[in-house]
């Protein structure tokens, strides 16, 4: 479990703070360290929601300028997880989707926002889409599947991170319905 000492964590924190990077994810054996500067704007996909412990708040207090999140997988210590941590561990809630239409992943695979590396993304937040517009690519073992919006509206939120694995039926985008939007959109809301 002692893959890394507290001093080393502080050293890493300093390095990240002085660097131009916003985010660091480090895994050594069971040990996992995720750092995000400025509160981390996007909700991170959180692997290992059960049995996780946020164990090093004392470290965080010493470096209050960098919000951090040090985790060790250790099911036995579940009991020590505080209520605040539990809330943090909640995945992107269904509640956030209220009033929005969801574009869900038709399959498990890797989520890509652009048709190829370096190309501009298919969509950004605020972009209007109609049912036939491509919104992303899901790659499964070198097979690239283009995902259509299937709804009409304005992209309100991008819920998955580029290059990350998404599950079958995971929400990828939230779409704000347009007044007088497409029939597909209306049906979705009705159901």
């Amino acid at each position: 479990m002692d893959a890394i000492s507290q001093d080393e964590v502080i050293q890493i924190l300093k390095m990240v703070e002085e660097s131009s990077f916003d985010e660091l994810c480090l895994e050594i054996g069971d040990f996992k360290l995720i750092l995000k500067k400025h509160g981390g704007s996007e909700p991170v996909q959180r692997p290992f929601q059960t049995g996780e412990v946020f164990a090093h708040h004392e470290v965080a207090q010493e470096q209050p300028s960098v919000p951090m999140d040090v985790r060790q997988t250790e099911p036995e210590r579940m009991a020590s997880v505080s209520e605040r941590d539990r809330q943090e561990m909640e995945p992107i809630g269904e509640g956030q989707e209220e009033g929005y239409l969801a574009i869900r992943s038709p399959m498990l695979g890797t989520f890509y926002r652009a048709p190829k590396p370096g190309a501009p993304p298919f969509v950004e937040v605020g972009r209007w889409v109609s049912a036939d517009d491509s919104v992303c690519i899901i790659e499964v073992m070198k097979l690239f599947n283009t995902v259509k919006a299937n709804v009409r509206g304005r992209i309100a939120k991008i819920c998955a991170e580029n290059g990350q694995m998404v599950e079958y039926q995971q929400t990828l985008f939230l779409v704000e319905e347009v007044d007088g939007g497409g029939e597909t959109a209306k049906e979705e809301i009705a159901s």
């Binding site: 692997p47 997988t73 079958y168």
Partner: peptide, 20 residues
């Protein structure tokens, strides 16, 4: 520790999919 949804109920589209 984690569950990953790999597809719909039919085994052909989930538990039998090597690539998924």
């Amino acid at each position: 520790d984690r569950a990953v949804c790999i597809g719909p109920s039919s085994p052909m589209d989930s538990y039998l999919k090597v690539d998924a």
